[in-house]
Amino acid sequence: MIKLSTIATILDSDVLTGEEHKDREFLYCRGSDLMSDVLSAFAQGSVFLTGLATLQAVRTASISGAGAIVFVRNKKPNPDVVALAKEEGIPLLVTPLSMFVSCGRLYQHGLTGVNGNR
């Protein structure tokens, strides 16, 4: 189980919104650019990594129950995306790292896939 603040450190990322949820805890990680894929499995307690910095990524996270979004490869969302995430209570992080390296680092720190696999 790792905290949001730890994830931010591990991924060298900026927190764009959701600083107040820094103690939120995570067990699982999913990296995907497919929204229906994200919705197809249980997401409670997971962090969602994606290269799509869109309103739909935030809504998909909210609907699925994911606890935070990390935008990889420095994908910076527009202000309306940040505002929506704030409203939905979903922290947004941006990392300069690639999807591969981001997932690798989180794996190393003990996170599993959303089905519990390692």
Binding site: D37, L52, Q56
Partner: peptide, 15 residues
């Protein structure tokens, strides 16, 4: 390009 088109939506609804 927006992350749709996996062909998983209707199967997700069924499930």
């Amino acid at each position: 390009e927006m992350g749709f088109g996996a062909g998983m939506g209707l199967p997700n609804i069924k499930k």
